[in-house]
Computed example of a mutant assay.
Amino acid sequence: MPTLTELHALTARLGHPVLRAPSDSTARFSDGSAYRFEIPSVEGPEVLLAVLEEADRREVRVDRTSQGSGVMMLTDAEISTMAKLGAERGIEINLFLGPRAAWDTGGQAKLTQAVGAAARGNAMVAACVADALRACDLGIRSLLVGDLGVLEILDRLKRDGTLPAGLVLKTSVLMPLTNGPTAGVLSRLGASTLNVATDLSPAHLGEIRAATDLPIDLYLEVPDDQGGFIRFYETAEIIKAAAPVYLKMGLRNAPNIYPSGGHLGAVPKELGRERVRRAALVQRLLGELAPELATRSAPSRPKDLGIPEV
């Protein structure tokens, strides 16, 4: 049996060193930014408008919004409106693929989140592809993927021209990513941006950064069903270890609104506004504690942002 030192040397030789403290990442987004803000759970055009209004009011630059209910829970008109708003503002509009095990007739996903976003059977894979084709036809250029096989299929469809070559494929937090080797697998399967587990330390993030140059997505405030952490004071360390990184603003003590709809009234809009307020708190904190990180490049519609095409 090798010693611990020998084991760590072996993983390092394979390209995955064990880090005690991460070195500062020098990688950046295409516009030179070390980080961007993502507002999740933007479930439709009314929520998107509320988020944009709050961002303008608080002077927070939102780079990406993401949605959790899925393409199948939106009408064509709703998707088209979101795409138009994203194109006008230069914001990535990310939509989840709708079919998933947690909403299907099977029992395992009712007991554990580990398979909740999986595509249960090939018919569900086909339904995910249908969601992707429909969203792209309506101008969307960023999709949230929760299944490994679907990710690989969508990448193949990008390569053969069925889907747009510039389509962003964002992995879901429901598809566990906790280490460098797994990051490498997702990268090879076609991921464009990697949603990592919510509880990773800066050293863990540094190990993932050493394995891939893809952007990392990380909740700074974590929904209760994913751990409920609030990591605002770690923001500078996270950026230094993980850049380029999307800082995701979830909410503790907030209801699960998936699948969303008019039956929830104003709740999704107010949650969206509060997520922007949380981003403003992080922005202020960065300005005080790490001013060298607080300055961001001017908005430029960067090529690596999945801005809708309408």
Rank of each mutant, 00 (worst) to 15 (best):
A197M: 09
E43D: 09
S80L: 10
R141I: 03
L305G: 07
A127V: 00
V173M: 07
V222S: 02
A126N: 08
R57C: 04
S297M: 05
R57A: 14
L289E: 14
L186R: 11
S142L: 11
P299L: 06
G149Y: 11
S172T: 07
V125G: 00
K240N: 15
S192F: 07
D225Q: 13
A12Q: 12
P99F: 05
V145G: 00
V62F: 08
M82W: 11
E292N: 13
L163C: 01
F96C: 11
P223E: 07
S33I: 00
G265M: 01
G106Q: 14
R20Q: 13
I93K: 12
H8N: 13
S23Q: 14
A118Q: 13
L167Y: 03
I238T: 13
G265S: 04
F229N: 05
P22W: 10
R20N: 13
C136K: 10
T81Q: 14
R61C: 05
T75W: 02
R156K: 12
S69T: 14
E78T: 02
R284D: 14
V173T: 15
A290K: 11
S201I: 05
D137K: 15
A236Q: 09
T198L: 02
D63W: 13
S80I: 08
G146H: 04
V282E: 11
E270S: 04
F232L: 15
A294T: 08
A87F: 05
I239N: 10
T11C: 09
L286M: 07
L10S: 08
T3A: 12
L218C: 03
G70E: 09
G86L: 12
E207A: 15
R252V: 10
I230L: 09
A77S: 15
R89P: 03
L163Y: 05
T295C: 09
T112R: 00
N256V: 08
L85C: 05
